[in-house]
Structure formats: C-alpha cells, structure tokens
Design a protein around this nucleic acid. Structure first.
Lengths: 252, 252
DNA sequence: AAATGTGAACTACTTCACAGCC
DNA sequence: GGCTGTGAAGTAGTTCACATTT
C-alpha cells in the first residue's frame, strides 16, 4: 500500500550524505526489532535511543529520505522499515561471494544476519584444493580457478575478501575484472581498485589499536588525577611535540 | 545510563583528532612494511600512497604528533614507527579476552595480526560447557562463570565480544563490572555502557548494506544512461535516481 | 500538546597552497 | 630543488532551537 502524493519533489536529489547512509542500517536494525514486537509507531526520541544516536541527528537523517513521519505522532514502523530498505537497495537480493574460507570466511558464511537482510551467499571460493567440494554452512567450496565463471554465472556484484593479506590484491583484481564492483575487505592490506569500484574494509587490528589509544589515554588521566595536587608529572624521555602531557606512568 | 557527568571530552586527548587516531594504525602498517624492506626514509607522498590516503592529510596528521620529518628529505621510517607505536600505546602489551568462541571468535583467536602488534590473547571465554578446556589457537577455552576472575587475574582492560546478539549486553555488563573499559563488539547490537567505557563495533551486515546502497546507485545510473526513455525496468515503485521523484506517501 | 522537519550556528575534518628549512 | 609543516579556505557533519503540523 503505497499510493498518493504528499510532498513536492523536494529537489534534494543529489545524494544522501555518506554519514547518513552509514547510519541507515542501524536504524533499520532497531526498527526491525520494534517491528517484531509489533510496535506500530515510534518517536524520533525513542528510535534514536534504540539506535544509539541523538534524536536531532536521526530526524535530520530521515529528512534526506523524505518526510516519512507524522508530527505529533512519530514514525510508522513498518513504513519506515520499507522506506529504508528500499533506499538501501535491500528490496532486491544481492548475491555475494566470499573468497578465502578460513576461520573468518567460515564465520562469515555461517553468519545469519546475512541471508536475513537482502544478501545471499552465492558461492564460497578458496585456493586450497583440499577444501574444494567440502561444504561450509551448507555451501560447497569452489576452487579459485573458477572464480571468473562463478561471478558471471551468478551475476555477483559484491565480493567479500577474507584471504590472507598476501593474496588479497590479486583476488581483488580478479573479482573486479570479472565484474564485481563492491568489495568488503577483511584482509589487512590496502586494495587498489579502479574508479567506480567501492571498497570497504574491516580490520580487527586497527580497531584494537584505536581502543588501545583511548585506553592508554584513560590510564594517563587516572594517573594525572592522582598525582595532580602538587607537582606536574615529568615527561619521561619524550622529546618534542607540542606541549606534551604524555603520561609517563605505568598502569599497575 | 548517563550518570556521572563531567568526564573528559573523550574525543580529544592531546588534541589529536579522532579521525587522525583512526588513521595512525594504517600508517603504522605501511611503515612496518617499509621497515621490513629496510627502507630508511620515506616521503609523505610515498607513504600516503602506501596507506591509501592523500599526502596533505598525512602530513597534517603527523603534525599533531610533532615534527618528526625532515624538510627536503622525508620521514625516518624506524623513528616514525616508534613514535606512532608510542602514541597508540603499543609499546606496552595489552592483554585481551575474547568472549564467544564460535567461528568468529576462533577466527579472531587465530588472527596473527593480533599478537604481532601489542596485543596478547590472554583468555578465551565461552558459555558452552562442551567447549571448556578445549584449545583454540593453542589457548584453552574457559567458562563464562569464571569471567570476572579471568579479567582480574590477567589485568585485562580490553574485551572482544563475539557472542550472539542476545548475549552481548549481558557479557558487556559483566566485562565492564569486572574492570574492562574498552570493548570491541562484533555482535549486531547496540551496547549500553557507562561513561568512561569505549565501545567500537564491527558489523558485517552493516558494511554490506552500505555497499548495497552504493551498488544500487551505480546500477541506477547505468540504467538511466542506457535507457533514458520513459519506461523504467526497476522493481515496482519508481525510486532513486538523481533528481528524485520520491513517492512520499503516508502510513496507513 | 506532542513531535516532526529544517534553517542556522557550530564543530570536525579535509584540502590547498606556500613559507620555511634542508 | 625537494619536501615538510601549517595557516587559511573549503567541505562535511552535528546540534540547536523553533516554526509547523497533526
């Protein structure tokens, strides 16, 4: 049920901000949960809390999609689920291949959130002949030799790379040559791709390093707080740097 | 939630922008590769190319750390590796626990980039008694019952959650209560944590959805280009496309 | 009365372009 | 001449605050 007009074209046209796009899946997840509990409507305040963002941001985000709410009431959950799904392109099914079926590849193949949301694991590919033919998550692993054929036969445009770093660029090149134009890269390496190909990367060790940075900072502040009263903490052996406040203290 | 106000801005420590912090691991990786090839110095241009960023950005990033380069020459690789490592807090060793030893948890436990860079998997924890005692990546899996003791005995401040979504918040609460203040969350759910605790999330399905959005946009543009005439081939309702004709309709 | 949608103000990040040093 | 380091300009993203609508 969706007919009628209401709002003028609103020449917003050119592009939803990238930051907004990155949050839409978050909203969608929260909305799906509400939908499962048969909640009919939700306010920006409530939904924002569920998604872990601030409500002004959420309203602004939605405003890029259109005017889908009702003042004084809120948003219709089902309707919004549909609109966001459509915006994200999840009303169609995306066949995906996973290349590199080690622990990580297997984890991805088994990942349920996959199939549930517009994605279908069309094939698993690995370079190890010993794996060829074996089933992972009920899907037979195929050999890298057949990569191009697999991509083409299945009309795959999204590829997931879960190979070791050393193989990633080569796999990437082959995927792109075969027609893949979006890549999710789990290998800890920078991928070079031609224009028109999107790459997103997920790197565990980078995430941990960012956490370590903040963790270190916290440890430093604690130490500062304790030692603040009289003397400033000496700067250890650190050298230049604009006015360092480097914590020269070990956690104990 | 949101109790003890007045913590630190959390976004700036020594005035290093969060976006810069997020790139430091990238630079570090590129520098490490250069170091292994015994390259003594590198220019901002070269290093930027290796890290996949633009060189002005890289120089600006480094300027937040201090003046570590030499005009007319470039940066000393070893020195920069050390400075960035120190800045990120990687000159110390961070014990990490992984909770939830399914496919993903196992993949993380086996992930080499871990140990190599300042992190040590101190323990693996899972709620399944059948797993208890079994070794994964050479590390025995321990039972969730002992979570608090494990955290405390090992002085763990960084935790990785790789459980199903349903268990994540509970695990998170216990980790935090036991003293963990940085969490890397792989479960597809929003975690609520008190002030002072950092959470970073990695969500496969969100990444895929973002890719799908761009993929759809690409497909739309292609279609527009080849079939400009009136009839569109898209699914039922007309949608996207630059210069929208957004079919705004009201909820039932 | 309640809650959206949005200009305007603000903040964060990026890129330019060039002075300054080697 | 080459390359860094950085103010200044430009761009993207966030938050405020309130007019508007139901």
């Amino acid at each position: 049920m969706a007919t009628g007009r209401t709002h003028r074209p609103a020449t917003r046209s050119r592009g939803i901000p990238e930051a907004t796009v990155a949050r839409l899946p978050l909203y969608l997840r929260a909305l799906t949960a509400l939908s499962e509990r048969s909640v009919p409507t939700v306010s920006s305040e409530e939904l924002a809390a569920a998604a872990g963002v601030n409500s002004a941001k959420l309203r602004k985000d939605f405003s890029y999609l259109g005017s889908y709410g009702t003042r004084g009431v809120g948003y219709d959950v089902e309707y919004l689920v549909y609109q966001i799904s459509r915006e994200l392109g999840l009303t169609q099914d995306w066949p995906v291949v996973i290349v590199g079926i080690g622990n990580l590849g297997a984890a991805l193949a088994n990942y349920g959130g996959f199939a549930s949301r517009g994605f279908r694991v069309a094939a698993l590919i690995d370079a190890d002949p010993a794996l060829t033919g074996k089933a992972v998550a009920g899907i037979p692993v195929q050999h890298t030799d057949d990569l191009e054929k697999i991509i083409k036969d299945n009309g795959v445009s999204i590829g997931v790379i879960a190979t070791p770093a050393g193989a990633a660029q080569q796999v990437c090149d082959r995927l792109v040559a075969a027609g893949v134009s979006s890549i999710l890269n789990f290998a800890p390496t920078v991928l070079n791709v031609p224009d028109g190909v999107d790459v997103r990367k997920v790197d565990l060790s980078i995430e941990l390093q960012i956490l370590a940075f903040h963790e270190q900072r916290k440890a430093g502040e604690e130490a500062m707080a304790e030692a603040l009263p009289a003397v400033a903490v000496v700067k250890d052996s650190s050298d230049q740097g604009p006015d360092g406040d480097v914590p020269a203290v070990m956690p104990a």
